[in-house]
Write a protein that binds this DNA or RNA. Structure first.
Lengths: 156, 156
DNA sequence: GGCTATGCGGAAAGACTTTCCATGAACGCT
DNA sequence: AGCGTTCATGGAAAGTCTTTCCGCATAGCC
């Protein structure tokens, strides 16, 4: 299911371009990788079917839509049962402020990124979060001051 | 420069759709928000010019391109001079494995997400990273076991 | 009440995507 | 070495979608 797909040099070059900017025309991309539109199109379609390309999205400036605050929340739990995990996952899914959630190995069990308009928004989120998830041992919020780098382009 | 743009209900609805899937046709999106293609198109163009929409990208499955390991790296520095910050930012920019870097407030100075093919890849990255950045007091790598949630859709 | 600015919608023009089919190269087999 | 098969490429046509142009309606303002 999750094995690496076989991709040649041209496939990777196409991916590199599309991860940076998917608004360019097929003809431009094809020319840049040294193909004509048709074979380039077929490669892109193949990678979409294989699940290499999982989608195309528009990126939106969080500040410009009134969501300037990102908070990283480190979660430690006292309960590691399957039931708790399911309940936690459901809570994460249901809270739209959580834009990222990773299960980690080590001292911290989960790391979330939460996007809110302001401090009051974070407080409101925090209350709903701790109410929805039982048996939290430690919840540490760290506020982001500045986004130094952020890219959708993987190092391929 | 970074103020919130004025967006009405329809603008936000368009953004919501495009943040989830930007591959859909203008006609579909227009219909869904209750407009014809022309005014919908004008709104999208306006938001692109305003910098609300910052770009369109293809999302790629990291596992499928041979990059299954994400590591969160918490960085604490002993040097907070402008010179150090500039050097740090340059190092972050130059290392493609770093896909995210945030400056935080509090005990941890920076949080990075690093994408690598395997443990050896992380070790190689780590060596280059600490060689490129001086005066690091503490570098804590936490390995991601599972991506529970990840979305480009902001809670608007 | 008339004027202006603003946003919407219809239709045409233009550009791009998608398909179809033919060609050529690479590879394996006899 | 010769043959056949497979696979990817490329050209051209068809189809679809984007983009533009222009007229209309509405709301705010004098």
């Amino acid at each position: 299911m999750a094995g690496a797909a076989e991709l040649d040099r041209i496939d990777r070059e196409i991916l590199r371009l599309l991860m940076q900017d998917a608004s360019r025309s097929l003809a431009e991309i094809a020319q840049e990788v040294g193909l004509t539109p048709t074979p380039c199109w077929k490669r892109i379609k193949r990678m979409e079917e294989q699940g290499v390309i999982t989608g195309r999205v528009a990126l939106v400036d969080a500040e410009r839509v009134g969501l300037p605050i990102s908070v990283f929340v480190a979660v430690e739990t006292g309960d590691h049962s399957a039931d708790w995990i399911a309940r936690f996952a459901a809570a994460v899914e249901s809270l739209p402020e959580i834009v990222e959630c990773w299960r980690l190995g080590g001292d911290v069990d989960y790391l979330l990124r939460v996007v809110v308009p302001d401090m009051a928004g974070y407080d409101a989120f925090y209350r709903r979060f701790v109410a929805a998830v039982p048996a939290l041992r430690k919840v540490t919020g760290r506020f982001a001051m500045e986004r130094v780098k952020r890219t959708t382009a993987l190092p391929i």
